[in-house]
């Protein structure tokens, strides 16, 4: 099976180019794209990509495969049409080949203060939640920060610095939904400008590509609802 892979090495290349590789994929193979990349790396050890857990938990191997951002480790080769085109995540600075710079992505993540804030005296054991309160976090806390969504969001393409992007906003929603967190008002006030949240046009590219099947678009809608409630 033919793979066409985006290559760029700043040490040697003037600009990025696509390079083709052949990989033997048995007819009924359950090979994932990540395994295919490893086989390609056996052929050509200069190929660079990130990977770690190889089971969709670490979020290292997000890349654009046949036009959609996805995790290489969770994408079966058999689900794709040949030739398989693999490019780095969209609209992120390429460090080398499929490895991209996450600096801005993590800056956006830090903006939403992705940690529990509660200045009340801690109880002797834990801050307890009812099962219902805990259930409110489902669909929000599972994000692995792979950047598939933010890198595929048109609003992030046009305003990468001002719009926080679906991943960061999903995390904002996660702490807004947490009954143990007491910084709700400050969090909402920090997000009220016309860009941070409101650049979202509910295009839903984030939801389409999320490898964990989360719905950042709905989470962002939830943030807007909370703002309307608090603001009125």
């Amino acid at each position: 099976m033919r793979f066409s892979i985006y290559r760029y090495n700043p040490e040697t290349d003037a600009k990025p180019y696509m390079k083709d590789y052949e990989v033997d994929v048995p007819h009924d193979s359950d090979m994932m794209v990540l395994q295919a990349l490893m086989l390609i790396k056996d052929q050509d050890e200069t190929l660079s990509f990130r990977a770690s857990c190889r089971e969709g938990v670490c979020g290292s191997d997000g890349m654009n495969i046949n036009g959609l951002n996805r995790l290489a480790c969770l994408t079966p080769v058999s689900s794709l049409k040949a030739p398989i085109t693999i490019r780095p995540l969209v609209n992120m600075t390429v460090i080398r080949d499929l490895v991209v710079d996450f600096t801005l992505f993590f800056q956006q993540y830090e903006k939403v203060q992705p940690y529990l804030q509660n200045h009340a005296e801690p109880p002797a054991t834990e801050r307890l939640q009812s099962p219902e309160e805990r259930a409110a976090l489902d669909g929000l806390y599972e994000c692995i920060l792979c950047a598939c969504c933010t890198s595929f969001c048109p609003s992030s393409w046009w305003n990468p610095e001002k719009f926080i992007g679906p991943a960061g906003l999903l995390w904002a929603a996660r702490f807004l939904a947490d009954t143990r967190d007491t910084a709700t008002e400050e969090r909402l006030a920090n997000l009220q400008d016309p860009f941070s949240v409101y650049r979202c046009r509910t295009i839903m590219n984030c939801t389409v590509v999320c490898p964990k099947n989360l719905n950042p678009a709905a989470a962002i809608a939830g943030i807007r609802h909370k703002m309307v409630e608090k603001g009125s």
Binding site: N64, N66, N91, N205
Partner: peptide
């Protein structure tokens, strides 16, 4: 060392999901 920075940003290589077409038509 090539100091020029590159991004993968070529709309012709991106598969536009159906909902994004609905959205861009709205705009």
């Amino acid at each position: 060392m090539n100091k020029q920075r590159f991004m993968n940003f070529d709309l012709t290589t991106i598969r536009l999901p159906f909902t994004s077409i609905i959205s861009i038509l709205h705009r």
